[in-house]
């Protein structure tokens, strides 16, 4: 297990290096700069501002400096949010995004896994139809359609929940974004669980258990362990999907999370924010995939890493 962690960490370093390099140069290729405005800055002032942020240095020097700072965990100053460093911003924004993401993932698992299992155990009647409808909604109705409808329905017409905003994480502000974010994941998790459970239930060991006369609740428990493997291996892509989702959800619900800073940053050529987001998200995905692989080994003895 330790070997896996070490090997993965070693493999992650060149990956991260490549990502940082790619993001750095692609971003600099973009026309326009962070301090362009409609009126345009006085050339003298522009020179000073660029100098202050080191943007007047040759590109390779900027790149070297960025890497050097990054090694020390410093993501640099934000070019748009004056007097804030990217670290300052992320210290506030990252927990918000992670909170929404984690809640959405938990919600998706809590709904998707039981519903998928139920649909596999009793593939007829209401349960199956419910599963079908949820799957269809998750696939055919993307977050950016669900979100406005929810806002109008629950926010403006019924007035049960706030339309948008964050309000320091008041629970009422979290319901709609979390639901929106979770819906597509519910669909995938449900489908995976259903298919895996169906396969496991027709495996020989289940037939043996039945032949031994075990009560069906025990049998389902055994089947569950086999059925949750695909779900577990899906958690890596799910985390990536949630990160993608947060960009839209945070934009629609005006939540001050990482996704929104990223979109604003990309549009406003806030180089450091964009780079910071890309690096942070990449690290996050790598770590999360590692955790999933470790958990996989715990559940499935066939792929134990030792």
């Amino acid at each position: 297990m330790l070997r896996l962690v070490l090997a993965r960490t070693a493999a992650a370093i060149p990956t991260l290096f490549a990502i940082v390099t790619l993001a750095f140069f692609v971003m600099r290729l973009a026309p326009g700069g962070p301090f362009d405005s409609e009126r345009g800055l006085d050339p003298e002032i522009m020179k000073n501002v660029q100098h202050a942020y080191g943007l007047d240095l040759p590109l390779y020097k900027q790149y070297g400096l960025y890497l050097w700072h990054l090694l020390h965990g410093d993501l640099g100053p934000s070019l748009h949010w004056r007097d804030f460093s990217v670290n300052d911003i992320f210290k506030v924004a990252l927990p918000i995004s992670m909170q929404i993401g984690a809640e959405a993932l938990a919600f998706a698992l809590l709904v998707g896994v039981p519903l998928g299992m139920a649909a596999a155990i009793r593939p007829h009647g209401i349960v199956l139809w419910l599963a079908r409808i949820v799957t269809l909604c998750g696939i055919a109705v993307p977050a950016f359609i669900v979100a406005p409808l929810l806002q109008v329905g629950f926010g403006l017409n019924l007035r049960w929940l706030p339309v948008a905003g964050w309000d320091d994480g008041d629970w009422r502000h979290q319901i709609l974004p979390v639901f929106t974010l979770a819906l597509p994941q519910i669909a995938v998790i449900l489908r995976l669980t259903q298919a895996a459970m169906r396969d496991t239930l027709s495996a020989p060991f289940i037939r043996t258990l039945r032949a031994f006369g075990l009560p069906s609740s025990h049998i389902y428990l055994h089947a569950f362990r086999g059925a949750c493997l695909p779900v577990l291996s899906y958690l890596g892509p799910a985390a990536a999907g949630l990160l993608t989702g947060t960009v839209v959800v945070e934009t629609i619900f005006s939540i001050p999370g990482l996704g929104r800073y990223f979109v604003d940053g990309a549009l406003g050529r806030d180089y450091t924010i964009v780079m910071g987001t890309v690096v942070t998200v990449a690290v996050f995905i790598i770590v999360f995939n590692l955790l999933v692989d470790l958990a996989y080994g715990l559940v499935d003895p066939r792929v134990r890493h030792d």
């Binding site: 992650a12 490549a18 960009v247 990223f262």
Partner: peptide
């Protein structure tokens, strides 16, 4: 390497 890149972020960039 490209796999670890956050897709949507790359497309936006």
């Amino acid at each position: 390497v490209v796999y670890a890149l956050p897709f949507i972020f790359l497309v936006i960039v």
